[in-house]
Write a protein that binds this DNA or RNA. Structure first.
Length: 745
DNA sequence: CGTACTAGTCTTTTT
DNA sequence: GACTAGTACG
């Protein structure tokens, strides 16, 4: 048979696209055309292998990736393509749970809680358990719980593992109570979505079997980012037919903090011994110089599958390296450079992107782009759906949809002001807890509750309002409902009358939400309020990016994964920024390796021109820092760059010339003056902090992150002191005094 | 019960 | 430096 459409693939790609049965690992380097392979593979399965589209499941991490794959599959296959299941992990699981979660004792109308909601729940939990939030912060507890869930550790097992460690025992109590609270509110957090699907499959084999039959052919994209729970989920689904194709690049694994387990990809062949492995190393995106830069950086990592990208596209330009005195000049340069090449007509704004390590870096860049009149879009930062006014509106919708969602009801009961205060709310909460009913149900019976008599009238009218909203929804749909909410509550009216300077923005945001609702109702077949809320809960920042608009994109390196641009700028290439100081001072050396993978991701986004910039002085968290050029820049051979990085940091940073320039170049605000003494004693670090050590061997000291411990050794190191501390909880660590900022206790 | 001020945290990345 | 949550006061 002749399969013309496979002609456009290279031999490795073709091999991958035509390997249909059994486990398959495709190690796809950056820009090696893996999405092409996946699309062709699906077409091949259907056309030549008679696989029913109905039996194919393709899983991605973001809605954007899912949408792109959907579009390309539709184009290539046409008829029947819509019965292929293409969705993110979370969307897939939510769809399954909406059908079967009643088997686990939840209602199928469950809510999904975001980080903000989780915090609210945890605050209540700690309060009830008499755990002082100053001793143990909500975030700490939630992080521990999230990691546990990623590893499929339930509250019981967590408690078992925590015995003897007071801190973990407290977290174990909180974990148990937190789960109970969520269940009472008929709510799931992000991790629950995966964990409960696994629980469902394990407790109800007939349900699992149903989906195993349905999904006979499974594909997982960005496999290097899967965590233990996601791995388990996939293993369960693929357990019967073993037609599992995973695509990924261990060098692009950058989500360890979110539980991603790189051994899922590194050990794939151990778990599936019969697996076929295909490496895609030919790159169709970048010039050879850019690839060489990427290869030379990533080769410094230890645990990785050996591979090297190559292209037949020629060397291209050198990598551009630029040094600046501070972040303002860096931003001016980037905006100005983009403006000038685009004015010459060499590039469009849409072909340029600026990448950075932390969202906080975006503000200064943004200001420069505004000044230069360069249109831009920022990806990420404060999520649209996390804004106060949007969360308020959503809380109304959630209350109408799922009244047992306590977080939502409590959020809006007094917004806008209805004169229902904390005391009343607490009494109702207590009553609800005592009688094991939801907060809303308690509201409905408020006349029985002692001590809230004065508020009964107000509470009744609130409950009535929700009831009216509910009937409104049935007759007029979601758009009708939101209009009524805005009208009845006077929320927007209040903003209009307010003299806050951001009230106009807030109103615009609410308008945008209404537009999103209209779009949803028009474009979704079986649209429902819970469907809308679910879609909203599962969006990622990157999902909203419009790559057709002629704008420069500004985003974090993480958000850039999977994208490509002709011109890429990576700003803030400094040790302490990128790699982050957190990673540098982590006792685990693989922390820097993860940052290096991030550098690899960033470099390989560039098709033609790559510019790396760094600043000698940068304001971070309200402190002026002096950082050396990033170690990753130094890992790029100088012959690949149009500038060489300074040989030693001292050469740049402590010359008279430099000090003078710095003083002149920062007239903008009252930034701190720094004396020579400070600089001299604390190279490349937070400058204006006394370097005197006020502790000696044997003293107890406190570290911001590691907690308390005893100093066992202090030794001289170049320009600093090396301190060894045995921490109560984490054991022995060696650190530089200047950075560790230990305080005597 | 609502407002105004203060203290503390954060900045690594997010489905 | 910016934002948020918590507290004191009217």
């Amino acid at each position: 048979m002749y399969m013309g459409y496979l002609d456009s693939l290279n031999s490795k790609q073709r091999e991958a696209a035509t390997c249909v049965d059994g486990p398959l690992l495709i190690l796809a380097g950056a820009g090696s055309g893996k999405t092409r392979v996946l699309i062709h593979r699906i077409a091949y399965m259907i056309d030549e292998y008679n696989v029913s589209p109905w039996n194919i499941l393709a899983i991605t991490f973001t809605n954007k990736a899912a949408g792109e794959m959907r579009e390309r599959v539709d184009k290539m296959i046409g008829q029947g393509a819509d019965s292929i299941w293409v969705a993110t992990f979370h969307a897939t699981c939510v769809r399954i749970l909406r059908r079967h979660i009643d088997l686990l004792g939840y209602d199928t109308g469950f809510s999904i809680y975001d980080t903000d909601d989780q915090k609210t729940v945890m605050k209540g939990v700690l309060n009830r358990l008499d755990i002082d939030p100053k001793v143990m912060r909500e975030k700490t507890v939630l992080n521990a719980i999230s990691s546990a869930k990623d590893e499929l550790i339930d509250p019981e097992e967590f408690a078992e593992n925590s015995k003897g460690n007071w801190k973990y025992e407290q977290i174990a109590r909180a974990y148990e109570e937190y789960q109970k609270t969520l269940k009472r509110s008929n709510a799931l957090d992000f991790d629950d979505i995966i964990v409960l699907t696994i629980e469902l499959f394990k407790k109800h084999p007939e349900v699992l079997d149903n989906y195993r039959e349905r999904f006979r052919y499974i594909m997982v994209d960005e496999y290097q980012d899967t965590n233990t729970a996601q791995f388990e989920l996939i293993s369960l689904l693929a357990g019967k037919y073993r037609n599992l194709c995973v695509v990924g690049d261990d060098d692009q694994s950058i989500y360890k903090f979110r539980g991603a387990n790189i051994s899922n990809i590194l050990d794939f062949e151990k778990v599936y011994p019969e697996a076929k492995v295909i490496k895609l190393e030919q790159n169709y995106r970048s010039t050879q110089n850019i690839l060489d830069a990427a290869n030379n950086v990533i080769k410094n990592n230890s645990a990785r599958k050996d591979k090297a990208l190559w292209t037949d596209q020629g060397k291209g330009s050198l990598v551009h390296l630029r040094q600046f005195d501070n972040a303002y000049e860096e931003a001016d340069f980037i905006a100005g450079d983009i403006r000038s090449v685009c004015r010459k007509g060499e590039y469009d704004y849409r072909q340029c992107a600026v990448l950075y390590r932390t969202n906080a870096q975006s503000r200064i860049l943004e200001e420069a782009f505004v000044r230069d009149g360069v249109t831009y879009d920022i990806v990420g930062g404060v999520n649209f759906y996390a804004r106060k006014e949007i969360k308020d509106m959503l809380a109304y919708l959630k209350t109408v949809d799922n009244a047992v969602d306590d977080v939502a009801v409590k959020r809006i009961i007094n917004i806008p002001r209805r004169g229902i205060g904390a005391t009343t709310i607490n009494k109702i909460s207590d009553y609800a807890a005592d009688n094991d009913i939801s907060f809303y149900d308690a509201l409905c019976r408020c006349e029985e509750i002692p001590g809230v008599q004065k508020a009964v009238k107000k509470l009744d009218s609130f409950v009535n309002m929700i009831r009216v909203f509910r009937s409104k929804l049935e007759v007029y749909g979601i758009k009708g409902l939101i209009d009524d909410i805005i009208e009845t509550t006077g929320y927007v009216e209040e903003l209009r009358l307010s003299d806050e300077d951001d009230s106009v923005d807030r109103i615009e945001n609410i308008d945008e939400l209404v537009t999103k609702i209209v779009n949803y109702e028009e474009n979704t077949e079986e649209n429902s309020l819970s469907g809308f809320l679910e879609e909203v809960a599962l969006v990622a920042d990157i999902d909203g990016v419009d790559s057709d608009a002629n704008k420069v994109l500004l985003m974090t390196l993480h958000a850039a994964k999977g994208l490509e641009f002709d011109r890429v700028y990576i700003a803030g290439c400094e040790d302490g920024v990128f790699p982050s100081s957190m990673a540098i001072f982590d006792e685990d050396p693989t922390a820097v390796e993860e940052e290096r993978r991030l550098a690899y991701v960033g470099i390989t986004r560039a098709k033609k021109e790559l510019t790396l910039t760094y600043a000698k002085q940068r304001m971070l968290r309200g402190e002026t820092q002096y950082n050396a050029v990033s170690r990753f820049v130094k890992e790029i051979p100088v012959e690949l760059m149009d500038n060489r990085p300074p040989k030693a940091r001292t050469e740049n940073f402590f010359s008279d010339d430099y000090i003078e320039k710095r003083e002149e170049s920062t007239p903008t605000t009252g930034r701190k003056k720094i004396s020579f003494l400070d600089l001299d004693s604390r190279p490349g670090s937070k400058a204006p902090i006394a370097t005197k050590i006020d502790y000696v061997v044997g003293d107890r000291v406190k570290h911001m992150k590691f907690g308390e411990g005893v100093v066992t050794k202090i030794e001289d190191a170049p320009k600093d002191k090396k301190v060894t501390v045995i921490f109560d909880e984490l054991g022995q660590k060696v650190m530089y005094a200047g950075f560790a900022r230990l305080t005597k206790v």
